[in-house]
């Protein structure tokens, strides 16, 4: 089955601005969907150098970029992608 890929940027900037707290996201996810989500430890995604990307912390959910990310924003993005996967299959 296709998986949703979640990359939480762990560059120093993102980590400082709250990325450290986003790393608890797997605890917030519905256990039944955990198998369909793949968390990737991401080195700095390099997004903070360009202010047009928005504010750190950054998280990528598949190709979708979440800026000024909070747990809820990322969870929403994951759920949206999960729905699309289910829709296709």
């Amino acid at each position: 089955m296709k998986k949703v890929t979640v990359s939480i940027c762990t560059g120093t900037t993102c980590y400082l601005m709250g990325g450290a707290h986003l790393l608890t996201i797997n605890e917030r996810l519905d256990p039944s969907t955990l198998d369909s989500v793949e968390f990737k430890g991401a080195h700095c995604l390099g997004l903070c150098s360009n202010e047009s990307n928005g504010k750190p912390p950054f998280v990528k959910v598949n190709e979708h970029l979440v800026s000024d990310a909070t747990l809820n924003k990322v969870l929403d993005a994951i759920r949206k992608e999960l729905k699309e996967i289910q829709h296709v299959s």
Binding site: G11, T12, T13, Y15, L16, H43, C44
Partner: peptide
């Protein structure tokens, strides 16, 4: 961050 050092 200011010195642009990525710990990773």
């Amino acid at each position: 961050v200011g010195a642009d050092i990525d710990v990773f």
